[in-house]
């Protein structure tokens, strides 16, 4: 898919055409191009987004297998520090990215939502593995949430059981591309409409 837009063409090591774009990304790019923004504001936005996208500190909510692959991602062979994912913060207040690694069960779901609510804006969510995306092999079970996107908004899905480290990188770089298209000063484009994102603020305390 050809996207004639510099906003989409911004990650090192991989050429823009090597990424797949989904309609969400395309819509964001289209909105950016259509609405435009002042040169100052958009430049400041670009700078901030550059910072944000290159410094994604994750909070690993590791419940099962995928968490081990995430550890392998941090270890020497794959070394996610190279891309700016160096720091994992264990306190949700200080993290930018909630990595949901592994099955989310009924007992865990309220806690996952609380963790999400405790995070400071801007915050992103990556759903890793079949279990978080759809419930995976356990979706028929009596205690498994079939897809965490029913509870919190998800930015990127990384399928696999567990995904390979390369897939992790692809997903995380997709998130970087998404962050680079955000608007910070010139309006908002990331959040769903306010009435959709109602669960947001109530628990911030």
């Amino acid at each position: 898919m050809e996207v004639k837009n510099h906003k989409l063409a911004t990650t090192k090591d991989m050429r823009p055409e090597e990424f797949k774009n989904n309609d969400y990304l395309l819509r964001m790019a289209e909105e950016l191009n259509r609405d435009g923004a002042g040169i100052v504001l958009s430049t400041v936005d670009d700078v901030i987004n550059w910072g944000r996208s290159n410094s994604v500190w994750s909070l690993a909510l590791g419940t099962s297998c995928c968490a081990i692959e995430f550890m392998a991602l941090g270890a020497a062979r794959y070394d996610m520090a190279r891309f700016g994912f160096e720091v994992t913060r264990n306190s949700p207040r200080q993290a930018d990215l909630l990595m949901v690694l592994g099955t989310i069960t009924y007992r865990m779901a309220p806690l996952m939502k609380r963790l999400y609510d405790q995070m400071a804006e801007p915050k992103y969510v990556i759903a890793v593995g079949g279990c978080t995306i759809s419930g995976g092999p356990f979706r028929k079970g009596y205690h498994v949430v079939d897809g965490i996107d029913k509870i919190i908004p998800v930015d990127v899905y990384i399928p696999g059981c567990p995904p390979r480290p390369e897939a992790f990188f692809y997903g995380m770089m997709q998130l970087q591309r998404k962050i680079k298209m955000e608007r910070f000063l010139g309006g908002r484009n990331r959040k769903e409409k306010p009435e959709d994102g109602e669960t947001k603020r109530e628990e911030k305390a």
Partner: peptide
Amino acid sequence: LGYIHRGIEKLSESLTYPQTLAFTDR
């Protein structure tokens, strides 16, 4: 406990034997 209780034992009861194998790795 139970924050990652996925009900594997119950699920196995409705699967054929070769299918149940998939759960043990997980």
